[in-house]
Computed example of a mutant assay.
Amino acid sequence: MANGSRQAAWEFFGAELKRRREDAGLTQVELGARVFVSGGYIGQFEQAIRKPQRDVAQRIDEALQTDGIFERLWRKLIKEQPYTEYFAHAAELERLATEICEFAPAVVPGLLQTREYARAMFLANKPLAADEYIEELISGRMVRTQLLKDATRPVYWAVLHETVLRVPVGGPTVMAHQLDHIARLMRERKVVLQVLPFAAGAHPDMGKVMWLMEFEDAPPTVYTEGVLSGSLLDEPAVVKRARASYDLMRAAALSPEASLALVESAAEDFRRCASTT
């Protein structure tokens, strides 16, 4: 399903939600109270600005007695979008964020990946997949990277563990190009990036991908990812603890200037390796 068609489908979801809510004689605030979200969230669902998570769609069905229609619509729309189910909602919120702070412990974050690096990652995870399927995955990843090229792009701050710079994903040539790409984004001031060096030792949330997202008119959200799973949390106390962990990692990381020098040095190391093979 093309992006335009998918958005139109979500707009239908929102229009149907508004119609069913009004038929039930409920305000946005009243429905929100019944499904444990704010009335503002219900309004954003109805305008297709935000997409509900599955449990919220289920509770809407229960509150409006709609025989599962909103959960079925949700499943249909999520299934036909280019991301895994556990990541899909985070990808939608990413487009709405005014600020994204990300920690990557092992691989280059999706927003920073080149096509060749993404290909190597997808092939490592799905070595028997057809070329057409891999190309679809790469295309979805490249659509995400456009976010940092938009004039209205969010403030993006990433902390990468030094491991990210040293693992030769795709081989030395692919890694050299990938690190050159990151360095270019840093020099063009499209991203703020710090490297957490090996010398920093132990750090909070070791081994876990973590994003913090801020929004214009919604509470901040934290997303963490594990093996074939992801959690999107907006409970204030949880977000506060995640922010504290992220701040500790930033404090332990190299400065942006020193980080740029390390990224460029690692790229040069991979270039020399490529030239000798």
Rank of each mutant, 00 (worst) to 15 (best):
G4T: 11
Q7M: 06
A9R: 15
W10Y: 08
E11G: 02
F12E: 05
G14F: 06
I42T: 02
G43W: 12
K51R: 14
P52T: 10
V56W: 05
R59S: 07
I60H: 01
E62Q: 14
L64Q: 02
Q65R: 11
K76S: 12
I78S: 01
K79N: 05
Q81F: 13
Y86V: 08
H89M: 09
E92N: 10
R95A: 05
L96C: 05
E99K: 15
E99N: 11
I100M: 03
C101A: 07
C101K: 14
P105K: 04
P105T: 11
L112K: 01
L123T: 13
A124K: 09
P127T: 04
L128W: 12
E135A: 08
L137N: 01
I138G: 00
G140H: 03
Y156N: 01
W157H: 12
W157I: 12
V159E: 02
E162M: 09
T163G: 11
V164W: 07
V167H: 14
G170N: 03
M175R: 05
H177E: 14
H177A: 06
H177I: 12
A183Y: 13
K190A: 10
P197T: 09
P197L: 05
P204G: 02
M206D: 09
M206N: 06
G207N: 10
M210S: 08
M213R: 03
M213N: 02
F215P: 00
E216I: 12
T221A: 12
T224H: 09
L228C: 06
S229I: 10
G230M: 06
S231P: 00
S231R: 13
V238H: 06
R241K: 05
R243E: 07
D247S: 08
A251W: 10
A261S: 09
A261C: 09
E264S: 08
A266S: 12
R272H: 15
A274S: 12
T276L: 15
